Computed example of a mutant assay.
Amino acid sequence: MNNLERSWMYERLDGRGAINSSFIDGVDKFIQYACSQMNRMSGDKVRCPCKKCHNFRYIEVEIVKHHLYKYGFVDNYFLWKHQGEKEVINEISSGQDIHGSAQPELGYDNPYRQIVLDAYGPNFLQGSSWQSFNNIEPESSHPCEPSMDEDPNPESQKLYDLLQAADAKLYLGSSVSQLVVVSRMLNIKMENNMSQRGYDQMMQLLKKALPEDNIVLDSYYQTKKLVHSLGLPVEKIDCCELGCMLYWGDDEHLTSCTFCGHDRYKCRIGSRKRKLIPYKKMYYFPLIPRLQRLYASHATAADMRWHHEHTKEDDVMRHPSDSEA
């Protein structure tokens, strides 16, 4: 759909402050299209693309109309992808994989594919690997730029593998992808405190039970290797067994507590090359990468920006962000 054909979306008011008739007609067309895509609805409700809801809420049709008349469409939403409209240009969500071959038809708005893209962030996709992924020849080449025939670097290859896992069907005729199964099984393992051995046995049974051409990862090691790049960083920090101090920063290389003198590592008999095991350790979850992920993710970015972007009414204060302070 040409953006000019939907210029009415951002011409809501006329010079007198009244709603343009073209905008009203356009909203009716939008509602008609949204209601025709039953697989993108929640019962009789559709996603509301107004500036307040940002396509995150399913609302009754009449309320969606009211929101659009009052708030207008979210910025730059010429393609109604959340209502099922498909892109026609060759983008990362198009029907080709990294090698240019056809991908399984899992739908335009594949949430697991979006999880992968959110995890790597927009900055990663601005490099040459983004061009090679889309199989688009650059208009001009530079001697210093990597050739299109070069193998992707390890970090890019991890992205490609995850995107392939998000799109590849588990077996011919399956309705779920490899990444869907892996994600759900890891969640089951966590919620039920399942051992690694139990996980392996269950996945091996699943692999045998499915058709021979299935691509089930039948071990925890393979699963962890695939999804490792999706996770957020965690740091392990050794502690004094009695809780006196952390072996961190300037104290990172100490072998005993500066307060109580307790040894940092357990005594082990045998070769000195054996791995040192601390008496106690803690897990630190860095805050900055988690905030970056919240702003990068399509599912949470709108909520993170809400305090700045939400609609304000004059002389009405509903939230601290409505005040000048």
Rank of each mutant, 00 (worst) to 15 (best):
V74W: 03
D167Q: 08
G270A: 08
I188L: 15
L246H: 06
S94G: 14
V64Q: 05
I188P: 00
M148F: 09
C144T: 12
R293F: 08
W80M: 13
S271T: 05
E87C: 11
P211A: 06
Q83F: 06
F133G: 07
T300W: 00
Q96G: 07
R6M: 05
L162K: 05
V74N: 15
F73Q: 08
R268A: 06
I115K: 06
I237W: 03
G95Q: 13
S219Y: 04
P233E: 02
H142Q: 12
Q32H: 07
L170Y: 04
S36Y: 03
P138L: 09
D263P: 08
E87R: 07
M194S: 08
A34N: 04
P152S: 08
Q157V: 00
G107C: 02
P152G: 10
H310N: 04
M1G: 10
R12N: 04
R40Q: 13
D263S: 07
V216K: 06
L291G: 02
M38G: 05
K29F: 06
L232H: 04
I63A: 10
Q37Y: 01
Y283M: 06
R318P: 02
V227K: 05
L179Q: 05
S175K: 12
G107R: 02
P154S: 11
L287R: 15
L68E: 02
S229W: 03
F56N: 01
H228S: 14
L163V: 10
F124A: 12
L294S: 14
Y171S: 07
M38F: 04
D200E: 03
P233N: 08
R113C: 08
F56G: 01
E241V: 08
S128A: 14
K65N: 00
Y160F: 07
D149V: 11
R272Y: 13
Y265D: 03
N110K: 05
Y112A: 01
H310R: 05
K169R: 14
H99T: 14
S141M: 12
P143S: 12
P138S: 13
R16N: 15
C240M: 00
Y33G: 03
M194Q: 08
S175W: 03
R274Q: 12
T255N: 14
D14T: 05
F124C: 10
D151V: 05
L291K: 11
V216Y: 01
N214C: 09
E145Q: 11
R197E: 08
S175L: 02
L68Q: 03
A166D: 04
S140T: 04
Q96I: 12
S219L: 04
F124N: 05
V61H: 06
C50P: 04
C239N: 06
Y112Q: 02
